[in-house]
């Protein structure tokens, strides 16, 4: 699957490791939550990066204490209509996680903007999707109504700033 990271189509340098396969010595790997919990010590001892992949019913609360050890959290979207992952990404962001937050599974072009706003910085996308699609979707709106994880100034504060500037 192509990967859109920070708005660019990139080669994915991460390997999704099946639970049944032994840990490779080198290379960045993404493991399931169960694997992480089981082989935590061995995984932390690796020099190369480790990420955890959460299914839609695994909240990041379960890895809250481990986030400093992880370089990536992948959040699964079993269907594009299942929006739990948006809240998971926001939680990760609030926990101060600075690694990659990646959406995997069923992602629609029309959702890039929301995903970005909730703190995702990488998405696995359908083949054929381009950087131009990304650009077009995330810039559909010049200002949002809410504060979220992307730091965009919400309309409410833009209004405040304007009021302050005009002194009224």
């Amino acid at each position: 699957m192509p990967l859109l990271k920070d708005g660019k189509i990139v080669n994915d340098s991460w390997l999704y490791l099946d639970d049944s396969i032994a840990l490779p010595k080198v290379g960045a790997i993404v493991v399931s939550l169960a694997r992480w919990q089981r082989d935590r010590a061995a995984l932390m001892a690796r020099t190369d990066s480790v990420g955890v992949r959460l299914t839609a019913d695994q909240s990041p609360e379960q890895i809250k204490e481990d986030l400093t050890e992880l370089a990536l959290v992948a959040i699964e979207f079993p269907a594009f209509t299942n929006g739990r992952g948006y809240s998971y990404a926001r939680l990760l962001h609030r926990y101060g996680f600075t690694g990659e937050i990646r959406a995997v599974g069923n992602v629609l072009r029309d959702q890039y903007g929301n995903m970005k706003r909730c703190g995702f910085n990488a998405l696995e996308v359908k083949s054929g999707e381009t950087e131009a699609h990304w650009q077009a979707t995330v810039s559909n709106f010049s200002a949002p109504y809410q504060v979220a994880a992307d730091g965009a100034e919400p309309i409410m504060s833009l209004r405040q700033q304007r009021m302050a500037a005009t002194g009224g």
Binding site: G83, Y86, S87, N114, R117, Y145, Q146
Partner: peptide, 9 residues
């Protein structure tokens, strides 16, 4: 309105 987190409840 278009809350980014609560659009696919």
């Amino acid at each position: 309105t278009l809350h980014p987190e609560f659009t696919y409840l």
